[in-house]
Design a binder for these strands. Sequence first.
DNA 1: CATGAATGAGGATTCATTCAT
DNA 2: TATGAATGAATCCTCATTCAT
Lengths: 194, 194, 194, 194
Amino acid sequence: MAKLQKSIDKRNALIKATIELVNNNGFHATPMSKIAKMANVSPATIYLYFENKQDLVNQTYIEVKAEYTKYAFKTYDKNMPVKAGFELIWKRIADFKLKECENAMFLAQCDNTPMIDAHSRQEGIKHLQPLLDLWERGRQEGIIKPLSNYLLYAYSINPLSFLMIIQKRGDIQLNKVQLEEAYQSAWSSIKQCE
Amino acid sequence: MAKLQKSIDKRNALIKATIELVNNNGFHATPMSKIAKMANVSPATIYLYFENKQDLVNQTYIEVKAEYTKYAFKTYDKNMPVKAGFELIWKRIADFKLKECENAMFLAQCDNTPMIDAHSRQEGIKHLQPLLDLWERGRQEGIIKPLSNYLLYAYSINPLSFLMIIQKRGDIQLNKVQLEEAYQSAWSSIKQCE
Amino acid sequence: MAKLQKSIDKRNALIKATIELVNNNGFHATPMSKIAKMANVSPATIYLYFENKQDLVNQTYIEVKAEYTKYAFKTYDKNMPVKAGFELIWKRIADFKLKECENAMFLAQCDNTPMIDAHSRQEGIKHLQPLLDLWERGRQEGIIKPLSNYLLYAYSINPLSFLMIIQKRGDIQLNKVQLEEAYQSAWSSIKQCE
Amino acid sequence: MAKLQKSIDKRNALIKATIELVNNNGFHATPMSKIAKMANVSPATIYLYFENKQDLVNQTYIEVKAEYTKYAFKTYDKNMPVKAGFELIWKRIADFKLKECENAMFLAQCDNTPMIDAHSRQEGIKHLQPLLDLWERGRQEGIIKPLSNYLLYAYSINPLSFLMIIQKRGDIQLNKVQLEEAYQSAWSSIKQCE
DNA sequence: CATGAATGAGGATTCATTCAT
DNA sequence: TATGAATGAATCCTCATTCAT
């Protein structure tokens, strides 16, 4: 028991260290030795848990992505009305991106660079399905513009990544009011105008 | 003359090689020797034009960013009406991002990673001023929502980066109609509702 | 009893694995962990039976060498006439080298590289004594050339190692006739011409 | 000129260092860093001349093997009588193996371990052709036993490798007389008895 | 006896940068 | 200005060995 827990702890420490260091320096400027040091293990130990550096980042990505989507849909119920459902999900995502910004930052970096291999990227996308389903319903009900999922995502969700990045960079600090404004913009961009 | 031109050509070749290689492999997975080879010069020659690798990327960034904004505002006149002006600029930007996707991709990578130093990033933002002025005018005229520039950017411009990336990845291919849809979403998200 | 047997089995499994892996990859390209895996034990277990890697190979060498000489002299009787005795021993050795080629290969690799320490090498030679005695007798009886044991070995026994190696490499396949020819060459090279 | 010469010198120094170190420690116990140090270059410099460690050893092998055969056939003329020709070649080979024992030792180690890749091994064999031709002639003239080249080699040439190894190990020291004896044994083993 | 997790030391290889020409 | 050879420092990864259980 204790042994298993210790193993899990080590793996988690490694993943956490990876996120932090990659966030600050990028993938290639993050040596395994530094990750090991930050996780309080020997460099060789990493290779007990991960095949190599690429595998470490891939798995970190998948793990964080899963955490992200789990958080996003935690309180969502697929029977909710489209508008309410979208607002709920959007605000959960915003919450995650702006509060768990280390994790969100890491995802952003992965999504915008050739850091992650295609397979892991694919793996990471899977869990977004509930949102896509919601959009499909919204389109059928004439509540949401008849646009492709990619476009809906680009305008309603992706801006949050941008906001997260510049907030992390210290350029802005979103408060409640601004967050509500952001939500309104998101909704405006995808809702079907009457 | 011929000599100066040759120098400029070399510098340009280096910048072009940097863009292509960094796009495909990322900053740290792009050795100076490969950049040199692709630009048909000796590695040592790079150091005649740039101080070091960081400087090479910084300057590349600034150059591409300048090209980008120059293109964006080429046909814009600050006396245009807000709505027309925005549409014009937006479509120029879209044009650039989707057609000169190598350049756009490079900018996206720079903007989402710790690849560029803060100073060069600052330098790159400067040229966006006309758009910010337009927005300011729009806010005053009650045509554009009274949001911070960051929010306006996040919702009206930044989505184009996302679309560019997934188009480059082969997931979508934006045609005229979809581009118009995209524009409408952009405008919807920032225009003041009556 | 059962326990002791199990121990012996493990030791043997380790020695067998060592032979096979060293044959195929060489000493230094054979990790302890692989030896352990092939012997179905934990890496740590190896150290219950052997002091370290060097010791494992040394002991393997000595063991195989002992097996080799035991086989060589199994049916030999020191009262046999010189010529008959030599033929008997030679053919037993040939038998061993060509049939138990894994073992023979391992010995050849040990004998031609700095893999084994001097002491173990010495240890391994000991058991060859009956052959040296036979040669001494042969020299005294004027049947065998008055050459040093090293020379006699080089010409009558050592060629078998070469033949074994190239047979293992697939270049030749010695049949009965060729073996007899080989024996005749061996004998020709050391017998006293009338 | 001077530059080219310096390059050749460095390459030679690397090859020489490789031979010496591999002789004493074996392939895998010879770090590139030690080879570099002994050749008075930086580790990175090795990679200017050789693709990787395997390539370094392969090329070293081929080079030494070429030197060896060149030496062996230097004074040989294919019109010589078989017996005289063989004696000449044999003695040149003996000379090489016993005097240039570093080189010979290296070849022996390569020939008896999985150190060299098959292709380079093949490459190395090529140059032995004159000896094989001589043997063919000898067989046709009824001077040499009708045995396969492999057998002839095993009995007449290969023993020299064994003698070289034990001489290098300090067990024996062949003088003129013993060398002549060795030659007689070699010849005895392959000559056709009347 | 037996283990598997853990590790420090070390090895092959790469790369940004320099320097003699 | 331009170069290609040279390099030291760093990086990923492996492995013999140990230790808590």
